[in-house]
């Protein structure tokens, strides 16, 4: 009961924040009805996906302060579970998604146990290493299609809510929006939960945290599992939305970093951070990419600018956009 109340408790944010959030929600709900290009719709879907990725990452990377750069392996597990189950056994999305999440979380416990013996840089590099190992294995594993990946069969009867196959993007949009809202409420409850507080104590000082009865190793593993569940869920969705997955686009290091970047840019360890980050980075990436990437001789310029922005943020305001908002307000509130 209290968990549900916590999920809906936004009372630590000033009214201004909630007004902006409410306006944003109205905009999101109405977006498909507004005039828009299909490119804008695709960007919007990307925004929701990366918001969810970032929210998940934020539990371990933001609240617990453990820089995880290997989230893509769990995107891959989610995406491949859905794809394999649909291709081979005709299993609908709503069954394969929870299975994928369970498999990913199970794998995260196995990996997490040794992983969280490491700290700081060592931890970050190790997360990359584990993710790359899994990607390499998938690339040579025939059962999942190797490096070529898998293509999902078109079932032909649109709209198909069971298998998530639609002609029009707004179906995907609303389903994802529902996931987004559920994810947001869950995180809001999470940051109010005992684990949420304990993780922030761990980030502050692990010795003090342990002296307060907190099993630091286990708490980190639990947060890692929550983060994993989020990205695996979106991974499953990604498989249905793209109809086509391969190790390179679901498990690459670039994706791992992008996920972390959303939260980092917006403000790691804050509720709105990942959403703010995604709302800046995703449109920038897709529009910069389409404007500049297409022109001869300018391939790469979008990512050059992107890299420069990342360097700038890291050097000037490591707490991200939300850190700037807090600096202006002169208060650190509403984490």
């Amino acid at each position: 009961m209290e968990a549900i109340r916590n999920a809906f408790d936004f009372s630590d944010f000033p009214r201004l924040d909630m007004t902006v959030a409410g306006a944003a929600l109205v905009f999101l709900l109405a977006f498909p009805a507004l005039p828009h290009s299909s490119f804008a719709m695709a960007t919007m879907i990307q925004f929701l996906m990366f918001s969810l990725y970032g929210m998940g990452w934020n539990t371990i990377g933001g609240y617990a302060g453990q820089v995880d750069l290997g989230k893509a392996q769990y995107v891959g597990i989610g995406a491949y579970t859905t794809a394999v189950m649909m291709v081979r056994w005709d299993v609908p999305f709503w069954v394969s998604m929870p299975v994928g999440m369970a498999l990913a979380v199970g794998w995260s416990f196995i990996i997490g146990y040794p992983l969280f013996k490491l700290k700081g840089h060592y931890f970050a590099i190790a997360t990359i290493a584990t993710s790359l190992v899994l990607k390499d294995l998938f690339e040579v594993w025939d059962f999942v299609g190797g490096a070529k990946g898998l293509e999902l069969p078109l079932r032909g009867n649109f709209p198909d809510f069971l298998y998530l196959q639609f002609r029009e993007d707004y179906y995907y949009f609303y389903i994802l929006l529902a996931m987004f809202l559920a994810g947001l409420l869950f995180i809001n409850g999470f940051r109010h939960s005992r684990l949420g507080y304990q993780l922030r104590a761990i980030k502050d000082n692990e010795d003090v945290a342990r002296s307060l009865g907190i099993n630091v190793h286990w708490c980190k593993i639990k947060a890692y599992a929550v983060a994993t569940a989020y990205v695996a869920m979106v991974g499953s969705f990604h498989a249905c939305y793209n109809f086509n997955i391969e190790p390179e686009d679901t498990m690459s290091l670039d994706l791992s970093v992008l996920i972390a970047m959303m939260a980092m840019l917006g403000g790691a360890g804050s509720l709105w951070g990942p959403i703010i980050g995604a709302s800046i980075l995703v449109p920038m990436r897709s529009y910069l990419g389409s404007w500049l990437g297409g022109q001869a001789g300018l391939a790469g310029l979008d990512l050059v600018i992107y890299g420069a922005i990342i360097m700038l943020i890291a050097a000037v305001q490591p707490r991200g956009v939300w850190g700037m908002v807090e600096a202006v307000r002169g208060r650190r509130r509403g984490v």
Binding site: G65, S193, R194, A201, K203, N205, V208, A209, G269, R332
Partner: peptide, 26 residues
Amino acid sequence: QASGDLSVAENVMVGAFVRTGSRRKA
């Protein structure tokens, strides 16, 4: 040293969470 994310009351709550899982009680 608790420099980061928790306010004074929240710090104390972390102590209280040893005995309860409820935020209200903490």
